[in-house]
Simulated assay, not measured.
Amino acid sequence: MQSVHDEPNDDPHDEADEPPMVLVHRLRAITVELDALAGTFARRNGLHPTDLRALICLLDAARADTPATPGLLATRLGLNSAGTTALVDRLERLGHVRRDRDTADRRRVLLSVTPAAVDLGQSFFGPLIAAMLAHAETFDPAELAVVRRFLDGTLALVTE
């Protein structure tokens, strides 16, 4: 895929003079490229971009051992009740999400991503993830700690 960032920098101001700004530009470039990649995945699989965000949200909740409810999904995605219901209905119809009653509280519905949806995502994003992990292994633990501190701090700023 052609990157929108393959062109030479025509900015007469040398970014090397402002290292923190270089990081901002790199994050923006990564965001644009990942968004384009996610859009390609969504289009190829008949998904809306919000569908993909919902699946990621549910996978993150599972990884954090957080109960994934429609309410959690609504809050994280900024959706109202009707929009959340339509989203979950669509993902369930496509076979990407399963609804189950909470065994501890039968009034509560828990959402989970199906193994088929995980496999679908892995088939598309798996090679990129593997390459990113291999790249991360070229850093020593101290370097990784700095990268993580920067990314965690940036994420906190963006989510505020």
Rank of each mutant, 00 (worst) to 15 (best):
H13L: 10
D14A: 04
E18R: 03
L23Q: 11
L27N: 08
R28M: 14
R28D: 12
I30F: 07
T31W: 14
T31E: 13
T31A: 09
V32R: 14
E33R: 05
L34C: 09
D35M: 09
D35G: 15
D35R: 14
T40I: 13
F41R: 00
A42Y: 04
R43C: 02
R43A: 10
P49N: 01
T50K: 09
D51E: 01
L52T: 04
R53C: 00
R53T: 02
A54F: 05
L55T: 00
L59P: 00
A61D: 15
A62M: 06
A64G: 10
D65H: 13
A68C: 08
A68Q: 03
G71D: 15
L73I: 02
R76G: 00
L77A: 02
L77Q: 05
G78S: 10
L79A: 09
N80P: 05
S81N: 11
S81V: 14
A82M: 14
G83L: 03
G83E: 07
A86Q: 10
V88Y: 00
D89N: 14
E92H: 07
R93E: 15
R93G: 02
L94Y: 03
L94H: 07
D100N: 11
D100C: 12
R101D: 12
D102C: 10
D102F: 11
A104C: 12
A104R: 08
R106F: 12
R107A: 11
L110M: 09
S112L: 05
S112Y: 03
A117L: 01
D119G: 08
L120N: 00
Q122W: 10
Q122I: 06
S123F: 05
P127M: 03
P127K: 00
P127E: 07
M132T: 10
L133D: 13
A136W: 05
A136D: 05
T138A: 04
D140A: 09
D140G: 15
A142S: 10
L144D: 06
A145S: 12
V146L: 13
V147T: 04
